[in-house]
């Protein structure tokens, strides 16, 4: 399965979707690393499977009832503490452009 190949152009496009800035060297490095990762994962296709094990439907229709809400603020402090920067209990992020 060596036909999968991630190009530098694809890495560049993915980086733009992820709003990441990459250097030329990083793009080349990630293109070759992603190619080898995908080639490895692609080996799953070589496993012979009969039709009836393709989908596991043992675990279906699982729901939670709409009740017992968390106490207000129950998880608040722990989560706020883990945020890199806060202001008046709000998460501070870089200025969002557009929208």
């Amino acid at each position: 399965m060596s036909d999968i190949k991630i190009t530098k152009g694809q890495v560049e496009y993915l980086a733009s979707l992820a709003q990441l800035e990459l250097t030329r060297q990083e793009m080349e490095k990630f293109a070759s690393q992603l190619t080898s990762i995908l080639q490895y994962v692609n080996r799953i296709k070589d496993v012979e499977l009969s039709d009836d094990v393709q989908r596991n439907f043992n675990n279906v229709n699982t729901f939670r009832n709409d009740d017992n809400p968390h106490k207000a603020g129950e998880h608040r402090d722990a989560i706020l503490e883990a945020m890199p920067e806060t202001k008046d209990n709000l998460l501070v992020v870089k200025k969002i452009l557009n929208n």
Binding site: H70, R76, I79, L80, N89, L91
Partner: peptide, 8 residues
């Protein structure tokens, strides 16, 4: 208040 009803 901001970030009152939040969890993991």
């Amino acid at each position: 208040e901001p970030n009152t009803h939040i969890c993991p």
